[in-house]
Amino acid sequence: MIQVERLCKTYRVAAKQPGLAGTLRHFVNRRSREVSAVRELSFRLEPGEMVGFLGANGAGKTTTLKMLCGLIHPSSGLVRVAGYEPQRRQRAFLEQITLVMGQKQQLIWDLPPLDSLRVNAAVYGLGDAEAQRRITELAEMLELGEELTRPVRKLSLGQRMKAELLAALLHRPSVLFLDEPTLGLDVNAQARVRSFLADYNRRTGATVLLTSHYMADITALCPRVLLIHQGALFHDGALDALAARLAPCRQVRLELAKPAAPEALAPYGELESCEGQAVRLLVPRERLTTVVAELLARFEVLDLEVSDPPIEELIGGLFQQAAVPC
């Protein structure tokens, strides 16, 4: 459904010093430098897939999404979405896709969502009866009712986002690009949007590419994730595999009946701390079960806990270094 090969995007950025003097100097001696936002990106999405698109701010997520929609022309490489070349923005292509941006809205602020929906229906060439049928169906899935007849400015953030989703899905797109669709929503509203997206995907078989700062969105919806780092693809596969790759070690926390000497514990893994009875060890994933068995046999253990560092921290750690060493 989506095919991306060796996609690149470089921007020319004016190198201007701040202030009036800088402006004048720039005017006389125009200098610019190239910034590459996306580098050699390649991936494929099959129809009906729901894929999470991860990366830090500025990693190139939004640029890539916009190239997939045809809003930005690629510098080089190939993009095909639903068989079309997005940058030509043909009508048939635009009727197949939708873009939802959590921090921007297309609904008219002073009018009820229903008015904006009628406009969208006309723009996408839907008949009145058909539009009404789809609005009813989607409103039911989104649990929207009389909110659709209240001015948008009087809706809560969660209601507004649901109405935005309704407006974006009225033309039954087969490819959904969702950029932070749950941004700023409270936990309940997030969960509702999430279950709606899963439901929509199941019912229509639409392909979904989703970015989110909330890992819960990704873990709940996306069996597969793409992680980009500094414009290049870092990981393509299951979320678990990503965690394994980013953090090859797991943390083992022990509470011993008697204090043990650090030297006695050192062979089992990298000792993070050892204060009396409380011990923290980092153990490579593949040796975890053997090490735990040995520890239980060797020491008198009161309590044992194995944990993963949270994925947000792991991705955050990616900025400081390419991979987290063990």
Binding site: G70, L71, R89, R91, A92, L94, L99, K104, Q105, Y124
Partner: peptide, 18 residues
Amino acid sequence: REGTLDFVLLKPIDSQFW
């Protein structure tokens, strides 16, 4: 300024008309 031009460009209708 607000980036909502993107929504207009994604509509299957002439953007100057819109």
